[in-house]
Computed example of a mutant assay.
Amino acid sequence: MVELKTPEQIASMRAAGLVVAEMHRRCSEAAVPGATTKELDEIAARVLADHGAKPNFLGYGGFPGNICTSVNEVVVHGIPTENRVLAAGDILSIDAGAIVDGWHADAAVTVFVGQGHPAEVTELSRVTEESLWAGIAAMRKGGRLVDISRAIEGYVRRQPRPAAGRYGIIEDYGGHGIGSQMHMDPHLLNYVDRRRGRGPKLVPGMCLAIEPMLSLGTSKTHVLSDDWTVKTNDGSWSAHWEHSVALTEAGPLVLTAPDGGRERLARLGVTAAPDPLA
């Protein structure tokens, strides 16, 4: 069952999304050489408290952090700890979420720690982020879920190949429905699997967390003994970008983007829905 939201519920999700955007802003600014991922988690906790929001990561399945901090070859679900000290040249995925009035938002950004990142690493993040926006632009009334998957994969495959030969589109993890819970139906692949068919129709009230994850090598991953941390099998570095998006009668509203996605979608010829909190 796909949960459809009313305009009032989408407004609450937008409020949660703005909290997530602030978590990203504050944590990204603090992601400097010498900082620990635990310190970033503490910053995220303060942002949540300042806005009267609740964390949706902390305690989820026993997860011990307010955010996920995934460094270099860690794809997702990295646990913030005082022992993980960031160094110049690292790349860091900050995955954050918030709950407002019982409604969830979830998003991720990849940030560069310090200076001196190889061109193929900066390009990895760029391609991942641009594929996210291609997927968001494909979230149109009357379409199908597979249209989003096709847009993400299509963008990635059109890019010049990295030195490794091909971007790995992570297979074991993808996007998801979001609303009264953080993870809901439908599951959203970042590539087209013809065995799954076209998926549900995209209709107003549907909300999705769209989150491409790419590596500079394999598409295969494994989970470490902490039962959370997900790494690439070949140790290749990865990037992760995510937004929560609501489909409305007026088009997509990017709940976790400060401007609702207006500027980035306009580049792709798509008009973002009006912001209910503006």
Rank of each mutant, 00 (worst) to 15 (best):
E8P: 01
I10V: 13
A11Q: 10
S12Y: 14
L18S: 09
V19M: 07
E29F: 07
P33A: 09
P33C: 14
T37Y: 09
R46F: 02
R46E: 01
V47W: 01
A49K: 14
G52L: 01
A53I: 02
P55I: 03
F57M: 12
F57D: 01
Y60E: 00
P64R: 04
I67H: 02
C68R: 14
T69C: 15
T69Q: 09
S70A: 10
V71E: 13
P80Y: 14
R84M: 14
L86M: 08
L86F: 04
A96M: 12
D101R: 15
A105C: 12
D106I: 05
A107N: 02
G114Q: 10
Q115H: 11
G116R: 15
H117V: 04
E120T: 10
S125P: 03
S131N: 08
L132S: 07
L132T: 10
A134I: 00
G135C: 12
I136N: 04
V146F: 07
S149G: 08
S149D: 06
R150C: 04
A151G: 05
I152S: 03
G154K: 08
Q159C: 09
P160E: 11
R161V: 08
A164S: 14
G165K: 08
R166F: 00
G168P: 06
S180G: 11
S180K: 15
H187A: 08
R194W: 11
K201N: 06
K201D: 00
V203S: 10
P204N: 10
A209N: 12
E211W: 00
P212N: 12
P212V: 11
S215F: 06
S215I: 00
V223Y: 07
D226H: 07
T232I: 02
D234E: 00
S236T: 07
W241D: 13
W241L: 02
A246D: 03
A246F: 13
E249F: 13
L255Y: 12
T256C: 08
P258M: 12
E263C: 00
L268H: 01
V270R: 12
T271C: 04
P274E: 06
